[in-house]
Design a protein around this nucleic acid. Structure first.
Lengths: 201, 201
DNA sequence: TAATTGTACATTGTTAACAATTAATTGCAA
DNA sequence: TTGCAATTAATTGTTAACAATGTACAATTA
């Protein structure tokens, strides 16, 4: 039985827009018009506004009063580096929390996510691969620290954007995730941390 | 001339609620009713909803679909420690950025904020002191990294909540901020970082 | 009594109309 | 033509009514 979670309209809209931005389909500085979005998603402007506020807080959009929201620009290289540091700190914390404290079921679920990654990679669906990559780390972070940790982690990751060249060019990315799960399965936090450090850059 | 920025209704409402939460006036798990808030602030529910979404993304509230928003609980001690680490990383980054790269005017402005802190401390206005403390660091972080860095930093700080005993009991807090500005004024990033490490805990 | 169903109530979610603000256009004068 | 002011259009902000959902409690049944 696949328990696909029920998602509210707003959640689904947010997901689509996040994908559009992360994939680069919506380029930086693209203006998002509330009415057009409302028409596109078949709702009124209310839910759209909710989503725009959320994405703005996640750092994917920038909003100006009485003017509107547009896609944010990539971080400066200095802030990019800082974000990598912060993200590593969070995920290394997560790895340590999970040592001797993770169920077989959860490990299996992570394996399944990696398989999905492999599949997207094989089919050259790189946007989906990116999303699944994020899904993997989100699962893992949520396991260790619940919603609180995810909320700390999520904006950092989204704002980093992904490293497409890297994703497009290499099977290594998928393998790196296998190493992380392997280390967790052996309850070897030190090794898990090392794998994560290699994976996040 | 005091340049009090024009703030939108929603911004002002957000500020009030943030204060209420940070000061502890609104305790964790307190349910926030949209209609009551609308009446209290003399608006309709629309702007209230916007604010609730924002505060939720900032980590001060937790929201459940079709149920509503309530004040979030303090972080676990593990996440609290992690947050301190992250906040230090960000502010230390900011201090380094500002070495040999800060105007006399900005330093004076920071002095002014510290004076305001001193004033609130003398009058035992501890909620205002807390807000001014945050204002100081926000100014400083914004100077170094603009909105992008502030957006990274802000949720971390809000979620940490403040350390009231410390605020209530000691003049030290105000002095620590003087040391930070002193170090910045001397373009001594190393000392500034050291002062910040002492201040954030 | 305990569990369950049904109903009334309270609250959030959504919508569409209207107000306020910003952006674009037009017309005019130098 | 260029620069500016006034006007118009487009877009966001706000509101109030309505729909959908969840909650609390009473009635019903085993």
């Amino acid at each position: 039985m696949t328990a696909s979670r029920i998602m509210s309209i707003r959640e689904q809209i947010a997901d689509v827009l996040r994908s559009d931005i992360i994939s680069g389909e919506l380029e930086p500085n693209t203006k998002l018009n509330e009415q057009l979005l409302a028409k596109r998603f078949g709702t009124s402007r209310g839910p759209i506004r909710d989503v725009l506020i959320k994405l703005t807080k996640e750092g994917l959009l920038v909003s100006k009063d009485n003017v509107g929201s547009s896609v944010s620009s990539p971080l400066s290289s200095g802030l990019q580096k800082l974000s990598v540091d912060i993200r590593r700190k969070i995920e290394e914390y997560a790895a340590k929390q999970l040592e001797n404290n993770i169920s077989e079921q959860d490990l299996d679920n992570m394996d399944a996510i990696i398989e999905k990654m492999q599949d997207h990679f094989d089919k050259e669906e790189f946007t989906e691969l990116t999303k699944t990559d994020i899904e993997f780390h989100k699962y893992f972070v949520g396991l260790a620290g619940g919603d609180d940790l995810v909320n700390l982690w999520y904006p950092v990751v989204l704002r980093m954007r992904m490293n497409y060249q890297r994703i497009g060019s290499s099977q290594k990315l998928v393998d790196e995730h296998k190493h992380i799960v392997d280390a967790l399965r052996q309850n070897n936090a030190k090794e898990a941390v090392a794998s994560i450090r290699k994976n996040i850059k």
